[in-house]
């Protein structure tokens, strides 16, 4: 599960200071899907970076599965990310010079695992078995999104963080991806999705609306 308490994050560029997060707390239980929505610039991406352990908040604390991930040395954070967190971006989830299957295998090995069975099952569930040997540049938009999900789920994470995962998909491709995310949640994963898609909001157990770095 995910516990984020009182997160603050400021950016400074020259004279200007942007307050991206102004005291956000968020708890997501295993099996729960939380959608984060809000206009652009409301702090969605910053919040996701902080809870995924990709960025440190200036104030506040983030725990995943009971382990603090914020404010630790980068090496520790990397280890925790590999074991506990799966991240899915809108695009660019795959290493271009590796095939789809190799991308998933690479993610597993980075997490210190060898789980060919899980890998095959993932690809099968996501309808990608036939494309396992394809290069990322040859995948269609929907396939690329599903492949990104396969990589994110490669290590059975406790927390799945997705930033606009269906932004480039139409509704018909969006459906299967969201179903798969939903399925994953049932296997005791906490899911946080930032999206402005109505379908995501409908699928979520809870919607958190952000405005100007605060929960609206």
């Amino acid at each position: 599960m995910l516990e984020a308490e009182e997160l603050y994050r400021f950016y400074r560029s020259g004279e200007e200071e942007t307050r991206a997060l102004r005291g956000i707390s968020l708890k997501v239980a295993p099996g729960e899907v939380v959608a984060i929505s809000g206009p652009s610039g409301s702090g969605k991406s910053t919040l996701l970076s902080c809870v995924a352990g990709l960025d440190d908040p200036d104030g506040g604390i983030v725990r995943i599965a009971g382990q603090r991930i914020s404010h630790r040395p980068e090496a520790d954070k990397a280890r925790l990310r590999a074991r506990l967190v799966g991240v899915l971006f809108q695009s660019g989830n795959l290493i271009e010079h590796l095939t789809l299957a190799q991308n998933v295998e690479l993610a597993q090995r980075v997490g210190g695992r060898r789980d060919p069975a899980h890998r095959a099952e993932l690809l099968d569930r996501l309808g990608l078995s036939a494309r396992a040997g394809a290069w990322p540049s040859r995948l269609s938009g929907g396939e690329a999104a599903r492949a990104g999900l396969a990589v994110a789920l490669a290590n059975r994470p406790s927390l799945l963080v997705a930033d606009e995962p269906t932004g480039e998909l139409d509704r018909r491709s969006e459906g299967p991806v969201l179903d798969l995310i939903r399925d994953q949640a049932r296997s005791h994963t906490a899911v946080v999705i930032a999206s402005h898609s109505p379908a995501v909001r409908r699928m979520a157990d809870r919607v958190v609306q952000l405005r100007d770095g605060r929960v609206a």
């Binding site: 990397a78 280890r79 980075v110 997490g111």
Partner: peptide
Amino acid sequence: RRSAEQALLRTRGASRTT
């Protein structure tokens, strides 16, 4: 491109040793 790949690997939790 290299920098993008590195960001991706780091996101996935690749360690310094990796």
